[in-house]
Simulated scan of single mutants.
Amino acid sequence: MEHFIIDAHSHLWLRQDTVVNGRRISPLPNGRADFMGEERQMLPPFMIDGRNTAEVFLSNMDYAQVAAAVVVQEFIDGEQNEYLAEVARKYPDRFFVNGMCEFREPGFLPQAVGLMDAGFRGLAIPAHRLPLEDGKRVWLNSPEMMELFKEMERRGVILSITLADGDMQVAEMKEVIEECPGLKVAIGHFGMVTTEGWMEQIKLAKAKNVMVEAGGITWLFNSEFYPFPSAVRAIKEAAAEVGMDKLMWGSDYPRTITAITYRMSYDFITKSKELTDEEKHLFLGDNAMRFYGFRNLPVLPYVKNMSE
């Protein structure tokens, strides 16, 4: 078997311009953003126009020998359905894209059905933002959500979901999994591994069709920095609980590459002596290839750097 590297958690956008909890997020020059009233380096500084496009990402992927990527969506980036549909048409073998609805308000079901009718094979829910700042809360086991999940299960559409820190939404998610045992679910951000109760999210992957992806794990262990030994230990701990065949690597591109290179977001795994070759193959690509059904992946050669 040929082993490929697949990124199970990334982001793309043409323009990041939206409002979350009444606070604006909008692009500034040189890769920066006005992020809820604070200036942040949202993109690497060479991405000067604020555009986070598939073509730039593909250049990074080819250089780092990453064969394919799953693109999720987040409210802080604004809805990108039209652009991601275009990306899927242009690069069907390189990207699996997720649609996103306005899940913070009731009445999202028709839009979700429309996205599935339009060909989206996955939907992303940034559920960690559903406990709203005004004290309201959108419940994952609400009637409209459950109707959506049952329709996704019927159609074979994958759910990519990031949960609030710890076990806040775990009971709701358990009910979803029990009611929709055929629904394929990817739990994001490795259960927010640096927060108390993270293992409760990991345990959800004991269910047959549930996986966990490690998008942003280098961000979560950023204070420790490369080569992220605590991240490797957390991966081993999670594997001991649910099996390495339930875990997938994810980069959280492009946000994480303001601190490290794209290759560094996974090569701390390839260089680790704490994991076997088989565990590395499963985590870095084999599991994602099976779960998302990637086919016709390119074999990407290593290109020597000028500094070597």
Score class of each variant (00 low, 15 high):
Glu241Asp: 05
Leu123Val: 06
Gly216Ala: 14
Phe95Asp: 01
Gly107Lys: 02
Phe291Met: 05
Phe35Arg: 01
Met146Pro: 08
Leu115Arg: 01
Asp117Trp: 10
Lys90Trp: 11
Val87Ala: 08
Glu39Thr: 10
Val138Pro: 08
His281Ile: 01
Phe149Trp: 13
Gly78His: 11
Ala288Thr: 04
Ala127Val: 07
Met145Glu: 05
Ala8Trp: 00
Val138Ile: 15
Asn60Gln: 11
Glu178Met: 11
Ala127Cys: 09
Pro27Leu: 06
Val157Ala: 07
Phe190Leu: 14
Phe35Cys: 07
Met36Val: 03
Glu200His: 15
Met168Phe: 15
Lys273Pro: 03
Ile161Tyr: 03
Glu144Gly: 12
Phe46Trp: 15
Phe294Thr: 01
Glu82Thr: 15
Lys304Met: 10
Asn296Gln: 06
Glu55Ser: 11
Trp198His: 04
Arg104Thr: 14
Leu220Trp: 13
Gln41Trp: 06
Gln111Phe: 06
Arg129Tyr: 15
Phe225His: 15
Pro301Arg: 05
Ala239Asn: 04
Ile235Cys: 01
Asn52Met: 14
Gly135Leu: 15
Thr256Ile: 10
Asp286Asn: 05
Glu278Ile: 09
Asp252Pro: 02
Asn222Met: 14
Lys208Ile: 06
Met145Phe: 15
Tyr226Trp: 13
His128Val: 15
Trp249Gly: 04
Gly31Arg: 01
Gly197Asp: 03
Tyr302Gln: 02
Pro126Leu: 11
Glu151Thr: 08
Gly156Ala: 10
Met36Trp: 11
Ala239Phe: 04
Tyr226Leu: 07
Cys101Trp: 08
Ala127Met: 09
Ala259Arg: 10
Arg24Pro: 03
Leu300Arg: 02
Leu204Gly: 04
Thr276His: 08
Pro45Ala: 09
Glu241Arg: 04
His11Ala: 03
Leu220His: 13
Glu147Pro: 06
